[in-house]
């Protein structure tokens, strides 16, 4: 059984880099150092500082911000964010995988066209798109109107400003980020392989679960990464479609820099959030590598 190889595990034939290998990698490493490591480093320093009246950083050392981060309330909020992100990812795999696969099996010209059509809706403004969803889901909205006139329901469903609306919004926003990587990976699968499975007597379900899915696992893994990771920090959708009744970790961090004017605490939250991600990611990678051996 093949395990999910996280993107990034070097190929078995990978070799030691020569001068060129290092030289070509240098710009990316430099970019990451300059625009990710250094700014994050600045914030890490801030997280040990105190603040003044304006919320500005005062350079005097304290652990307080980190003590506060581990207050159960913030862990609870982080848990909720992860849960929403997880649910979104699962639904996106279930909904998006077949689409990615289907598009990959079309003739070449149609493929690119369909791929673009998946993404084009998202070239509208986020806010306008979300307000369109509000018009669909509100009590006197399109969906309730349709269902009422079809006689499927007798009273309008309360959808907007509930967790259901939030999940619809999140799945909508992240679905393309599942479909596209799955497509990238499925497009490579040789039709002959699929046919061979059929010829050997595998039914469509068995061919799918034993041949197709394993072959496209890298695409699924990439999609999971691209949906799950950004979804944890998302809060605009929960605010607009969920009525901002529950805080997400993204809200909490943003509030420290805006409303609460406590940059050091916001920085500490950011640092801890980042470190949690790093350790989880490294652990998954390590586990993946071990089980591959």
């Amino acid at each position: 059984m093949q395990t999910i190889g996280l993107p990034g595990t070097a190929a078995p034939h990978a070799r030691k880099p020569g001068l060129w290998g290092w030289l070509l990698l240098a710009p990316m490493v430099l970019w990451l150092l300059l625009f990710v490591v250094v700014p994050t480093g600045i914030l890490a320093v801030y997280s040990f500082c105190q603040r003044d009246d304006l919320g500005r950083v005062v350079f005097s050392f304290t652990w307080d911000n980190y003590v506060r981060v581990f207050d159960p309330i913030y862990l609870n909020i982080l848990g909720r964010s992860v849960a929403y992100a997880g649910l979104t990812t699962i639904i996106c795999v279930a909904v998006g995988y077949p689409v990615g696969w289907y598009i990959a099996r079309r003739p070449a010209g149609l493929r690119n066209l369909l791929l673009l059509l998946v993404m084009i809706p998202f070239w509208t403004s986020f806010l306008i798109r979300t307000y369109a969803w509000i018009a669909i889901l509100k009590n006197e909205g399109l969906l309730n109107g349709l269902l009422l006139s079809a006689g499927a329901i007798t009273a309008p469903l309360e959808l907007l400003y509930t967790p259901v609306a939030v999940v619809i919004g999140l799945v909508y926003a992240y679905l393309p980020f599942m479909i596209l990587p799955v497509y990238g990976s499925a497009e490579k699968v040789d039709n002959a392989l699929v046919e061979a499975a059929h010829d050997l007597g595998a039914g469509p379900v068995r061919a799918f679960s034993e041949v197709i899915i394993p072959l496209t696992l890298p695409g699924i893994a990439a999609g999971v990464l691209l949906v799950f990771v950004p979804a944890i920090g998302m809060f605009a959708i929960t605010d607009l479609m969920g009525g901002a009744r529950v805080p997400m970790i993204g809200n909490v961090i943003q509030n420290q820099f805006f409303k609460a004017r406590n940059w050091p605490f916001g920085a500490a939250l950011g640092v801890v959030f980042t470190l949690m991600f790093v350790f989880t990611y490294l652990a998954v990678q390590w586990h993946g590598r071990r089980s591959q051996r």
Partner: peptide, 23 residues
């Protein structure tokens, strides 16, 4: 009026209340 660091008290209270009263 400017309330300085007390802004954090408000943020903490509201976050806490939203967290417990929400789903």
């Amino acid at each position: 009026r400017h309330i300085g660091e007390s802004g954090a008290l408000i943020d903490e209270l509201v976050t806490d209340l939203k967290n417990t009263s929400g789903q």
